[in-house]
């Protein structure tokens, strides 16, 4: 067999190698299809009765809350990100504060940050985050998003041609006016694709809000699905949640691709 293989030409040997790997793959898939217990899978993961019970709450409450929390923390987080980016670019003591903030919350898992705002901060400083568990969760996500988007926005600011700053300053505009009216509008436009990506990440991270706890009306998609899972002892809710996430993320990911192509200066 080995002698047979080595007698072949290199290109032919490659072809044999590729064919055999396809063959292994096909055998594996066929085995899975034959061996898997399809009736049980259907009952456990795609059960129409369980799905009917979820409806319409999984959309009108859970998906709605997921979108609400994501959009709220994205808007607040982006504003924080702009502030941090501007401070970091400006330098000085506030710049060092911005760097510390960014590095701190980029280095800690988002789950821990949300946990901290929900339980540690109220106990340690005896303050209650407005909005209860949801408020604490959104605040945690805002802080994390702020740290991540700050770096994205800073790269956008630095991508604006230095001639823009010079032109604005030569007209007598202060550095603040130059940043607000000239640099930021251009820098933010440059970072629309990575910011959309950040939105997709945030949408998925909103599932971490389960750690803060939620009432029936304030559950987001993952919490809703997990709770339903334990109530029904059936994984169909998880599958539905996954599909609903994809329903939002896939069009957005496609949109990012389109935007990147449109904003690409080489085209």
């Amino acid at each position: 067999m080995v002698a047979l293989l080595s007698s072949l030409k290199p290109t032919a040997r490659q072809r044999v190698g590729r064919l055999s790997s396809y063959l292994v793959g096909i055998i594996f898939i066929v085995l899975v299809i034959v061996v898997a217990d399809w009736p049980t899978i259907a009952k456990q993961f795609a059960n129409p009765e369980v799905a009917a019970k979820m409806w319409p709450g999984i959309v009108t409450i859970a998906l709605r809350n997921t979108l609400l929390y994501t959009i709220a923390s994205f808007i607040l987080g982006s504003l924080l990100g702009i502030l941090l980016a501007v401070l970091k670019v400006a330098g000085g003591p506030l710049g060092w504060f911005a760097i510390g903030f960014i590095e701190l919350f980029r280095g800690i898992p988002a789950l821990l940050t949300i946990f901290a705002f929900a339980f540690v901060v109220p106990i340690a400083f005896n303050v209650q985050v407005p909005g209860g568990a949801v408020g604490a969760g959104i605040l945690g996500l805002t802080v994390v998003t702020g740290a991540y988007t700050a770096e994205i926005i800073r790269s956008g600011i630095e991508a604006v041609s230095p001639g823009q700053r010079e032109a604005a300053r030569s007209l007598g505009m202060t550095s603040g006016q130059t940043m607000f009216w000239i640099i930021l509008p251009q820098g933010l436009r440059i970072v629309i694709p990575p910011m959309t990506n950040e939105f997709v990440m945030l949408l998925k991270d909103s599932s971490l809000l389960f750690i803060a706890g939620a009432t029936v009306q304030s559950k987001e998609l993952t919490t809703f699905a997990r709770d339903s899972l334990s109530q029904t002892a059936n994984a169909t809710p998880l599958m539905m949640a996954a599909l609903l996430y994809l329903l939002v993320t896939l069009p957005l990911t496609w949109l990012v691709g389109r935007l990147e192509k449109r904003l690409d200066p080489k085209r």
Partner: peptide, 19 residues
């Protein structure tokens, strides 16, 4: 800034604000 307000400058690369 006060001095620059009264002194116009024109650049080789125009530097118009594209936004």
């Amino acid at each position: 800034n006060q001095v620059r307000t009264h002194v116009g400058m024109v650049f080789q690369s125009f530097n118009l604000f594209p936004n």
